[in-house]
């Protein structure tokens, strides 16, 4: 008996469930399909009419609509499970992002071609939670990373080369020995086995360069599938970060993104912020009260070039760290174009 036959017998007593065993699961799935989060505007099961949609959305998003620029956009593809929700870009705009938008065209632009790779070199700091035989510990892991991403396609076609740097202490925690185990170089190796992002969260150059250059439409894109309220605004703000971190947009889309991001409710200016490479700049930020964390996108204070992102504690109880602690930060050091992927090690 060979090893495959023996393996096939292992746990073979577990039965294949019949339809009756799975009925409850199927009902749950159908319920989730019929009533998709985050909100449902109509209980009747019929597709809500435009007027009804508008009325409800006005009620739901009163603060936003009151200062609207007069541009109405409908976010959410009704073909998908996204609820039809109106997202109107407000006129108010945060200053740093506005300046960044005005300056977006001043930098030499890269023109990567299909088949090529964009190379992003950055330095990062992330909070790591360890739960092993040695107990529970936290530390700030620091590294340099060089990532190759295909001009078209998801991150499974990408490669990464990393270098672990000496770790930093998480506020109030000693650095555990395990933190020093993965220092040194690694890769280049495949970046990811999976990338299950939905279409509208793609950040490859080919996709980003097809996004609208009109800020109101870019605003709509940021809210695809989202409802109204603080949760949706927080998600939209996160998506901005997704398009800035290891992603490259043509200048026109970049300007539109900054203008759209500047209009997200709750976005404020931070006068001084330091990125993971120690560069000081100004930041546009949004606080997520539920987490007690402020997420800042940092820009050079003169040229308004994007420098990096960091997450800072604003509520010690919720974030479980002293106010002002930096929990995550990154610094984008260089973006370039290459014809080929690196040779895997």
């Amino acid at each position: 008996m060979n090893e495959m036959t023996q393996l096939e017998r292992l746990r073979a007593e577990i039965p294949r469930p019949g339809p009756a065993d799975l009925q409850a699961q199927e009902d749950r799935l159908l319920a989730a399909i019929a009533d998709p989060p985050p909100v449902r505007l109509s209980r009747s099961g019929e597709r809500p009419r435009a007027v009804r949609r508008l009325g409800l959305s006005l009620a739901a998003g009163m603060a936003v609509v009151a200062v609207a620029a007069g541009i109405l956009v409908v976010a959410g593809d009704t073909e998908l499970d996204a609820p039809p929700v109106l997202h109107v870009m407000p006129v108010k705009a945060e200053t740093v992002l506005k300046r960044a938008a005005e300056n977006a065209g001043r930098f030499p632009e890269l023109h990567p071609k299909p088949g090529q790779f964009l190379i992003f070199e950055s330095q990062t700091m992330d909070t790591v939670e360890v739960n092993d035989a040695g107990g529970h510990s936290r530390y700030l892991s620091r590294s340099k990373r060089k990532v190759w991403l295909p001009v078209e396609g998801d991150s499974t076609g990408g490669f990464i080369e990393g270098e672990g740097l000496s770790p930093s202490a998480y506020p109030g925690w000693p650095i555990p020995p395990v933190a020093r185990e993965s220092l040194g170089r690694s890769g280049p190796e495949k970046l990811a086995d999976f990338d299950e992002r939905v279409e509208y969260l793609r950040t490859d150059y080919a996709y980003l360069s097809r996004l609208p250059t009109d800020p109101a439409k870019m605003y709509q894109h940021l809210y695809t599938g989202l409802s109204h309220g603080a949760r949706a605004d927080a998600d939209a703000w996160q998506r901005v970060g997704g398009m800035l971190t290891e992603a490259y947009l043509p200048a026109a889309q970049r300007a539109a993104l900054f203008r759209a991001a500047a209009a997200i409710p709750g976005v404020t200016t931070v006068g001084e912020a330091v990125d993971a490479a120690g560069r000081t700049g100004v930041a546009a930020a949004r606080t997520e009260p539920a987490l007690g964390i402020r997420e800042e996108y940092i820009f050079d204070r003169k040229t308004y070039r994007y420098l990096g992102v960091r997450r800072v504690v604003t509520d010690a109880v919720r974030a479980k760290a002293p106010v002002g602690s930096v929990l995550t930060s990154s610094a984008l050091l260089k973006v370039s174009v290459a014809d080929h992927a690196p040779v895997e090690q």
Binding site: I14, R16, P17, L22, Q25, E26, I33
Partner: peptide, 25 residues
């Protein structure tokens, strides 16, 4: 199912038994 979401139930009926057994194992 892109037009009629409930049609996705058929995908579940076809594959859920095998996938359930696999994941349970």
């Amino acid at each position: 199912s892109r037009r009629e979401p409930e049609a996705f139930a058929e995908v579940f009926r076809r594959h859920a038994p095998d996938i359930t057994r696999y994941v349970t194992r």
